[in-house]
């Protein structure tokens, strides 16, 4: 039963990815902009242009190009980046971990911060504190990630230079990492100075990405918590002598958290989309930043690889979210 539904999901994922691949492939070739034109020096002969075109397989018809590319992708060959002249898969393997670390830390910050504020707002129900919480939260909700990024740059990077403005690690820090997961690796290998430097570089992009999500979590979770708090079982639990905090955390939260998990999943995919612009602002070497360069350079193989990676990420996240929702709702567990 479970095996069947997992198989179904995998099949759906494959179809989705295929659809993404087709759309991107066609779009990239329909929009104006010629990758070869970006490469050649002015005044190159038509012969050398044609030779380059043939070298990258761009002289064939569209369906043929697609099939050639798809055949290679299926066996793990994503081609060679036109602008960077390196294997696309290698580039992705180098850059993806940076983005994953950034996005996951931002997600954790959003969940912890948003969850805590939601609980606080629920406890402050009908006190003067509630409108304060709601107002601050509304403000965070209204400001998008890239505006946060710019504001943080101005305040914590320029006016009060507390955190490093750009990059992933201070170039002066002498380290050789065995993996591209700098944050995790430095923590696991107990190199706390390096860890502190990597973490400091992440503070501002993490806040820019995490604050809007935290605000969304707060709003949805607080709403659901307040709805749960007027249920009879809360009243009975209160009569059993539970404190208000315990009522919220033990009784209300587990019933209120379902919609929040589902929404957080959706919003997390938007957060990953947001890494593109936020990584750019902080010159953070992730796939988002790379995606902008790839588009500017009309680097077709690289763009295609990047989009597939983003698509796969979205699918995996949605799958995880569905599993989490079921895990938190005993009524969905059977059948």
């Amino acid at each position: 039963m479970i095996a069947v539904s997992i198989l179904k999901r995998l099949l759906m994922a494959a179809i989705t990815l295929f659809g993404v691949a087709v759309i991107v492939f066609v779009l990239l070739r329909v929009v104006p902009g010629d990758p070869i034109a970006m490469m050649i020096s002015p005044g190159a002969s038509p012969e050398s242009i044609a030779a380059l075109r043939a070298q990258y397989g761009l002289d064939a018809s569209l369906p043929v190009q697609f099939l050639v590319w798809l055949k290679a992708v299926v066996v793990g060959d994503f081609g060679t980046s036109i602008s960077l002249r390196r294997n696309v898969l290698e580039l992705l393997a180098e850059r993806l971990p940076a983005t994953l670390e950034l996005a996951i830390v931002a997600l954790l910050v959003a969940v912890v911060l948003g969850g805590a504020v939601a609980v606080l707002g629920t406890l402050l129900r009908r006190t003067p504190g509630e409108p304060v919480v709601d107002t601050v939260n509304g403000l965070c909700l209204a400001v998008p990630d890239f505006v946060w990024a710019l504001a943080l740059v101005l305040v914590l990077g320029v006016a009060f230079p507390v955190f490093p403005l750009s990059g992933r690690i201070n170039p002066g820090v002498q380290v050789d990492f065995a993996t591209p997961f700098y944050l995790i690796e430095s923590l696991v290998t107990l190199r706390f100075k390096v860890f502190a430097d990597v973490a400091a570089h992440m503070v501002m992009p993490v806040l820019a990405l995490g604050l809007p999500l935290a605000a969304i979590i707060t709003r949805v979770l607080k709403e659901a918590l307040l709805e749960a708090m007027v249920q009879d079982y809360i009243l009975l639990a209160r009569l059993k002598g539970m404190s208000s905090l315990r009522l919220v955390l033990q009784e209300a939260l587990r019933n209120a958290i379902g919609p929040t998990i589902a929404l957080t999943g959706v919003q997390f995919t938007f957060l990953i989309g947001g890494t593109v612009i936020v990584e750019r602002i902080f010159a953070y070497p992730g796939i988002g930043n790379m995606a902008i360069d790839a588009v500017i350079n009309r680097d077709l193989p690289l763009i295609q690889g990047l989009v597939l990676v983003f698509g796969a990420l979205f699918i995996v996240i949605n799958l995880l979210v569905d599993m989490l929702v079921v895990a938190f709702n005993p009524r969905l567990r059977h059948g």
Binding site: D232, Y233, L235, L236, G241, E251, R254, N255, R331
Partner: peptide, 24 residues
């Protein structure tokens, strides 16, 4: 009052559908 409620005075609620926490 909190010490008395639930321990000395308790409640049988009206609607058993909503009086039990669905998640516990």
């Amino acid at each position: 009052l909190r010490d008395i409620m639930g321990a000395q005075i308790s409640l049988i609620p009206q609607d058993p559908q909503t009086a039990l926490n669905p998640g516990r």
